[in-house]
Computed example of a mutant assay.
Amino acid sequence: MIAFLGQGRMGAPMARRLVAAGHKVTTWRRSGGVPVATAVDGADLVITMLSDPAAVREVLTAALPGLRPGATVVEMSTIGPEAVGELRALLPPGVGLVDAPVLGSVGPAAEGTLTVLAGGDVRDCREVLAVFGAVRECGPLGSGAAMKLAVMSALVPAQVLLAETFAYGEAHGVDRGALIDVLSGTPLGVLADRLRVPSEQTRYSLAHATKDLELGAWDGATMATAARARLQEARAAGLGEHDLTAIAAHLGGGPHAPATTADRPAGGPARRAVPHNLSTIPATNGMYSHAVRVGDMLYVSGQAAFDEHGNIVGEGSMEAQAEHVFQVIARILADQGASFGDIAFIRTYLTDMEDRVAYGRVRRKYITGTAPASTTVEVSKLFMPGLLLEVDLIVALPR
């Protein structure tokens, strides 16, 4: 029996492929109401296709009581080799692990034409993986995850580069269709044609593309770093669930108008402090503003992991809460035309200093250049039970 955990855009058609191939499949989704440990009970193969490392870790931790000795977990999400190593340490020794992320989007997932990048011993699952498409064995455990990020570190920045090319052409009177026709005769032709008309169907979301570049961040990645900043800005602008091709329209619209009009009331002098509260992040209780701008400086209130209903996001998981906090910060920065590289000072409050390593892994995905001034302190509790961290900032806004 196969347990397939995750029924999103990719997971659902992949599970259907297995059923069509004659396999007995139990599916699980977060909203299904069935405990994940029950879903994996008795399964020989457990496949995960989830959004990010925090989600995979959370789901497999909950599945542990149901995993039988001798079962194999096939991790097919894009989570990176470090997270694969953490999963190996999490799973019992008697449970096998293979990392097998895929290249391809929703269409190939339904057609069974994905490329499966497998790391580890695939002898017990190669036949199943072949249902999804061509299986390429990359080497030891973690090598499939590393190969996936390496490939995306080329493909995603290339699409951002083309979006900037279209924006340049638009600004200089170059016909977009003609530009794509010329590019079609170059090695970039296939990617350029995808951007001809942004896809209305989300095949590969902008949020997932951003996440993939964040996972693949390293000090020498100058082009990928620039592309990641562009995507983080677009995600903060609310385009995360759109197809990656939406980056072309986002960049082609021209530069954002400078946020200066609110600094000067009609007929009056410049205001000293201007509050900023975005509709894309949970509202405040009226006793504070998310951020206040004073001239070219932005002071960001402590941000924590709760949603618009006041519920904790990622309860019990430092990495899940930190990921949420940094995505909220990204929206605040983008609203003021800033990026993580503009942070002058960051202060972090942790309820347990032992969580600083997990927090640091997430922070390094977002703050990748010269480190800002920083303070990290342990506190006995935060304003809402269940919160593990809070982060506040001082940002030097670009002129």
Rank of each mutant, 00 (worst) to 15 (best):
L278S: 03
T284K: 01
A283N: 05
D121H: 10
I2Y: 03
S301Q: 15
P69G: 07
V325I: 15
P157M: 11
P269D: 12
M297H: 12
H208V: 10
L387Y: 09
V300N: 00
T61F: 06
L114P: 00
L5N: 02
K148T: 08
A246E: 15
V300G: 02
M223G: 04
W28L: 06
E127P: 00
R293H: 04
R123C: 02
G32I: 11
A229Y: 00
A270N: 02
D44W: 01
A259P: 00
A167E: 07
V190H: 07
L215D: 02
A154H: 14
E58C: 00
L183R: 05
A344Y: 08
W218S: 03
A15C: 10
A83V: 12
S184T: 10
Q159I: 12
L239I: 09
A221M: 11
S51P: 00
A396R: 15
G173V: 07
A145R: 09
L388I: 09
E323L: 12
T280V: 05
T26E: 05
G238T: 10
D352S: 08
A248I: 09
T284M: 01
L162I: 06
A234K: 11
A130R: 15
L18T: 07
E390N: 14
A373H: 12
A110S: 14
G337P: 03
E308N: 07
T72G: 00
T202H: 05
E58L: 02
A320C: 01
A83C: 08
F345W: 13
R347F: 05
S51E: 01
T78A: 02
G240Y: 13
T284N: 01
A62T: 03
A55E: 07
N277R: 11
G8P: 08
V95F: 05
Y168R: 02
V135M: 04
P282T: 06
L60D: 04
I2Q: 01
G189I: 13
R399V: 09
E58Y: 00
L231G: 03
M318S: 01
C125A: 15
A63Y: 06
A178V: 15
G66A: 03
S279Y: 03
V46M: 01
Y288T: 08
L161Y: 10
S317M: 10
M49V: 15
T260G: 12
H242Q: 14
L87F: 09
D355Y: 13
V84W: 10
D212Q: 09
E323P: 00
H250A: 09
Q232H: 01
V102F: 06
A154D: 03
P398K: 08
S31M: 03
R272E: 12
G70V: 07
T61I: 06
S199N: 13
L179M: 15
